[in-house]
Design a protein around this nucleic acid. Structure first.
Lengths: 145, 145
DNA sequence: TATTGTTATACTCTATAACTATA
DNA sequence: TATAGTTATAGAGTATAACAATA
């Protein structure tokens, strides 16, 4: 712990927290399918990033109960966005895999959000881009610890 | 639209999107009260930032229906986190104001999140801090457009 | 008449407990 | 016996429609 608090350092922390929440909120508003709940979208995004996982692993990652994840996966399966597969190594496991429809929703949403964000970043000078790249690297390090 | 896509610019956009979502998710995990739902916490955070608002204004800001906000405010009121006040200017309005208990929850959560984030930022060099400050300014500009 | 908020009703998401199938 | 997932049940969040109070 720091014994002499540094007001400038605190401001940096506090403002980073605020702006990250606000930007995340703004980007989340860029949607492709309004019918898809946040929980459902979080699952297909996770599967798109990290590949097929067992139902329990997804539930743990999303910090919801197994029954809640069972229902979320049921909805996604009925909508054709994910598939259930048997695990050849352990008959108790259910592997959940992104289906073609799910992949399309995730990529279309990513494209829409990137397009919005990109439009906000146009016209940035080289120094701004470098600062942003450095800040992104710092934030990546923080979240991957 | 850009006719010759710039791969480096795209990477910057894409990685900013990803890291902002991840950092927001990680910070959101730093909680004070597990019993408080996301909707409830969003309301008291909004009231803390922007002061008392009518029920309808909060519902619009949070993009939920008025009946949904009525119920959320009911819970918060029963928990002693907010208060309903009459609007002297318009008898149809209900002003919702953060109560002392709500203020404590918001500030304790902010402090916990800032403490976590600050601990992740310790040891940063001057150049990193400058890059971060510049990136924060850029992101603030984006969200306030 | 139009607006603000609440109540009525129905559906979704969530959790805990009980159950089934597999290890 | 222990573990992974599903089903049963109940509580909370959400929406639309109908209503009461106020402008």
């Amino acid at each position: 712990m720091r014994h002499e608090p540094d007001p400038a350092a605190f401001d940096l922390t506090n403002e980073l927290r605020l702006v990250v929440f606000r930007l995340a909120r703004r980007m989340r508003a860029e949607r492709v399918l309004d019918e898809l709940s946040d929980s459902q979208f979080a699952v297909i995004t996770f599967l798109h990033l990290y590949g097929p996982h067992t139902l329990g692993a997804i539930a743990m990652r999303e910090r919801v109960s197994a029954p809640a994840m069972t229902r979320t996966v049921n909805r996604l399966e009925r909508s054709g966005l994910v598939e259930r597969l048997p695990d050849p190594d352990d008959g108790r496991h259910v592997l959940v895999r992104l289906a073609e429809g799910g992949r399309r929703v995730v990529t279309a949403t990513e494209e829409k959000r990137n397009a919005w964000l990109d439009s906000q970043l146009t016209g940035l000078g080289e120094q701004d881009r470098e600062a942003l790249a450095r800040a992104i690297a710092l934030m990546r390090e923080i979240v991957s610890r």
